Computed example of a mutant assay.
Amino acid sequence: MTEITEVTEITRLRRKAVEIRMTLLKLIHRAQTGHTGGSLSNTDILTALYYHTMKHDPQNPKWVERDRFIASKGHSVESLWAVLADLGYFPKEELETYSEFGTRLIGHPNNKVPGIEMNTGALGHGLPISVGMALAAKRDGLNYRVFCLMGDGEQAEGSVWEGAMAGAHYKLDNLVAIIDRNGLQISGSTEDVMGSEPLDRKWEAFGWDVVEIDGHDFGALIHAFDSAPQVPGKPTLVLANTIKGKGVSFAENKVEWHHHVLNDQQLEQALAELQASLKSLGAPEQEGSVHS
């Protein structure tokens, strides 16, 4: 990618991420429920994956060679619903049913929805299952990669570390785990609730290649995702340092926004801030439906 092309691509991704944030905030406000802070912190990660790195096709969601994405931190699903609707996995109008009785769009990923590989939300389950998917690709001679997004509070789950051991043991260099490291969980700072540092050295000790980045820097995100694996025979752990509530000034780095709903005035202010960010990024670019 030339320098000019990369700058254009980063601008396109930044614009898309702002649009996704606006959609998810409206989604949560309409439903009067949702995990606002974590959805805002992981939006840039999802945007880099779905609009740049991953091989996938909304018109053929079961394409055998597709890359797999597992949202292990399933409670922050609102950003994922916004992305999948925007890409055409299901009609955008269906977003209006989020959390209503009988809807497919519930508060965690639901594999009745095209584009969702598995039901998630019971923390600690996503990585072990991602290990199985990556191992299946190796044994079937397929070239897809598996991306698994975890929360930083989720690192207290023992099954995460069982999955980490297995991923390294089977030399799954087609596996990329991502930690949304925003430093906060429902009851406070992750380091106060259950200290996990030094995360980088722990994952390295379990046999993973660790890449630490700014989780809101699209240049760093696409480089980390596109270049994995940098070490053949090792799975990759992307430690993405993020800000809970990113993009909404009054929600950033506030633990109370883990699960919080905007009132009418807050929604208006948040959308105004995001609209100003969108305006500063210029006109949108055209994009196709198949990403690779």
Score class of each variant (00 low, 15 high):
residue 2 T to L: 08
residue 11 T to L: 13
residue 12 R to S: 07
residue 16 K to P: 07
residue 22 M to A: 06
residue 23 T to W: 02
residue 24 L to S: 13
residue 36 T to Y: 09
residue 47 T to P: 09
residue 49 L to W: 09
residue 52 H to K: 06
residue 57 D to R: 14
residue 58 P to S: 08
residue 64 V to C: 07
residue 71 A to D: 09
residue 76 S to K: 00
residue 78 E to K: 02
residue 82 A to E: 00
residue 95 L to K: 08
residue 104 R to C: 10
residue 107 G to T: 12
residue 108 H to S: 09
residue 110 N to S: 12
residue 113 V to M: 14
residue 113 V to I: 10
residue 115 G to F: 03
residue 118 M to F: 14
residue 119 N to A: 15
residue 120 T to P: 05
residue 120 T to F: 02
residue 121 G to Q: 04
residue 127 L to C: 09
residue 137 A to H: 05
residue 138 K to G: 08
residue 139 R to E: 12
residue 144 Y to L: 06
residue 146 V to T: 10
residue 151 G to I: 03
residue 151 G to D: 02
residue 152 D to G: 07
residue 154 E to D: 10
residue 154 E to M: 07
residue 158 G to A: 13
residue 158 G to P: 00
residue 161 W to M: 02
residue 161 W to G: 03
residue 162 E to T: 07
residue 163 G to R: 10
residue 166 A to M: 15
residue 167 G to N: 05
residue 167 G to S: 13
residue 171 K to T: 08
residue 179 I to L: 10
residue 179 I to V: 14
residue 184 L to D: 03
residue 186 I to E: 02
residue 188 G to I: 14
residue 189 S to R: 08
residue 192 D to A: 02
residue 198 P to Q: 11
residue 199 L to G: 01
residue 203 W to L: 04
residue 206 F to S: 06
residue 215 G to Y: 01
residue 215 G to N: 00
residue 218 F to T: 03
residue 218 F to A: 00
residue 223 H to P: 02
residue 224 A to V: 13
residue 225 F to Q: 02
residue 228 A to K: 11
residue 232 P to C: 06
residue 236 T to E: 06
residue 236 T to W: 06
residue 237 L to H: 00
residue 243 I to S: 00
residue 243 I to N: 00
residue 245 G to Y: 01
residue 246 K to H: 15
residue 248 V to M: 12
residue 248 V to I: 13
residue 253 N to A: 09
residue 254 K to I: 14
residue 265 Q to A: 15
residue 268 E to W: 11
residue 268 E to K: 14
residue 273 E to L: 08
residue 274 L to T: 02
residue 285 E to D: 15
residue 290 V to K: 08
